[in-house]
Design a protein around this nucleic acid. Structure first.
Lengths: 351, 351
DNA sequence: GTTTAGCACTTGATTCGAAAGAGTGCTAAA
DNA sequence: TTTAGCACTCTTTCGAATCAAGTGCTAAAC
């Protein structure tokens, strides 16, 4: 049975009121403050019906109603009208993002930090899955007497670097050979392929040139696989102010979420490219997430996934505003990255 | 008036009991559980005296006593006998630190992580003050078409790297010239000196060679100054389990400490080189710290400061154990770094 | 002189029931 | 179909009474 117009309006009002106060909402509150033109009794009847249909929950008989996950879902998909950011708000974001950040990972972290400051929720950042990165270039740089820095440049602009120490001697010449060989073999391959191939494909060959190569290959393997599992969180402190986290169990759940990160990783992985993904409460199977909502936006440039930004907040989230904000910031990030790319010579005749 | 032996024993017992329970301690508890051979009445009298002298506080008339900062201070300086780590505990630390970490900053972070896991408090890491780092080598590495990675190697083993994008063209040859010039001018200077000199000393010279140099110099400046202000915290989640943080205001104070980091920075800066520094509650002027203790250990190798590790916990801290643990871990870190240095060729004839 | 038993006293914590408050669900009337 | 009205349910609040912990002091014992 579809919801009639009045029920929609009532559901909307309840959600807005609950989002403001975090307290169960009663029929008379709606009748008096949201002049819908119906008495509290009528609203009461509809609220009972909405509960029956699963859009509302009731903590106990004499309390008001609380939106359920299904209620929020309906609101987000059907009722809600996205808030239009004011020029002032846009400027605020633009100003904070204006510094020319050259590493995409840093840019994305910066964006995430703004996101948490503007929304007052926690924000998250995830790097791209490793099978979405291809090797553009590998550089080996000798540092001091016995260390080697490995720099890995991916086609999506991600840069990773790490340092290994070797025992014995490697000549500059050997390093050059290693370097050329690595680039020759792996350029254009995605990280996962390189990882799967590196041992069989190249280790022996390198080893014959100089047997100090083992730690180098190990470290390269490590670099190819790490980031996959790393989630960076910001603004988690904001969350501690929320009234819902005053409850011991909810607090524990939240700390679990940010400590284990399992749920976040899973959702990030499943998010659609270039789309806003909204996961409300128990829509996901993660028990700890039942009182929270996660919204993610996976950044994509030229079909290359470059990472995900997102927000973690209470189910009672200001969807109307958060969704446009995350969109705006995400789009801005992509814009900046593309700009960077264009200066690269992508627009010939401009330099 | 100095404390007689009995008062010392009573103070010690109170501290140990309070450390266990976080509840005010009564005279009869001490009499029954810590057989000192005196009745509760006697202990009661001494407790009143200890309070009078400022070693104990009393939350209210009908509660027991709680150690004051002065009480803890006396305990740490005079009464306490440091706990001897068991071989098992040492092995635990050794195992966790055994992986060969090649970047000192990473090594120190690793150590800090172990510290928080073993003590169950929060741990902190700070890089060295920048005037304690000297330039050993600067490397410029061309990445892709329009980016340059700057790698800064300090004599204390710290490595910093960053990436800049430039507009226009720089030939490999120009990069080599920049590189030699930077090393020629700045090798051996400490970061602060370089920072103070770089603009007057070299910018024009470089600029004449290639005018794309501006962002490079800006970024280098940034690298020379950052880290100074960065504190890395670990295990803050442990703290949330503490009963003292159940109190709203104490929780707020703690969150303030870890968010602003002002107090931590100040204490880290003032810590004595190569020494354990203990800051108990209101011994420092920082209001937020009044219920907490910070212990720091500044790592030094060959007079070169390489960073600080430390612990943040409640005033009611297991001093007897935490101090030896932080010492052991700190010393282990230095040992590892020195080993690394030796493999470097420091011990000729070994390779 | 020092230590201890004993007890009155203080004060926060706990318990309990009554009253208050909020909001529903149902009935009957508009 | 909507609404007024009211009984009913359940939680929250409040204050009084009781409880429990621990002190401080006095007077006796060592």
């Amino acid at each position: 049975m579809p919801l009639d117009e009045r029920k929609k309006r009532i559901l909307e009002a309840i959600i807005e009121e609950y989002n403001k106060t975090a307290e169960p909402v009663g029929s008379s509150k709606i009748a008096s403050d949201y002049n819908l033109g119906f008495s509290s009794a009528t609203i009461r009847n509809d609220m009972a019906a909405l509960e029956e249909m699963g859009y509302l929950d009731k903590p106990h008989t004499s309390a008001g109603r609380v939106p359920s996950s299904k209620g929020y879902r309906f609101y987000v998909d059907t009722i809600m009208k996205e808030y239009q950011l004011t020029p002032r708000e846009k400027a605020l974001i633009d100003d904070n993002l204006k510094e020319d950040v050259l590493r995409f990972d840093e840019l994305i972290k910066e964006a995430s930090s703004i996101l948490s400051r503007i929304t007052n929720y926690a924000s998250l950042v995830a790097g791209p899955q490793n099978d979405a990165c291809s090797v553009e270039e590998i550089k080996l740089v000798k540092l001091g007497q016995d260390r080697l820095m490995i720099v890995l440049l991916a086609d999506n602009g991600i840069i990773k670097e790490s340092v290994v120490r070797y025992n014995g001697e490697i000549s500059e010449e050997n390093i050059q050979i290693f370097n050329s060989l690595l680039n020759y073999k792996f350029k254009g391959m995605n990280f996962k392929e390189v990882y799967d191939n590196i041992n069989s494909n190249i280790q022996d060959e390198l080893y014959n040139i100089n047997n100090t190569v083992v730690p180098l290959v190990m470290e390269l393997n490590h670099m190819l696989t790490e980031g996959d599992s790393e989630i960076y969180l910001d603004g988690t402190r904001n969350m501690l102010e929320l009234p819902e986290l005053k409850k011991e169990t909810t607090l524990k759940n939240f700390l679990n979420i940010i400590e284990t990160q399992d749920a976040i990783k899973e959702l990030v992985k499943n998010g659609y490219n270039g789309n806003i993904n909204v996961y409300i409460g128990q829509e996901t199977a993660f028990e700890d997430l039942k009182d929270f909502t996660i919204i993610t936006y996976k950044q994509v440039i030229n079909d290359k996934e470059i990472g995900t930004i997102g927000v973690i907040g209470p189910k009672r989230m200001d969807y109307k505003k958060v969704i446009p904000v995350i969109k705006y910031i995400g789009d801005k990030v992509q814009e900046k990255i593309k700009q960077g790319g264009e200066e690269d010579g992508g627009k010939p005749g401009e330099q």
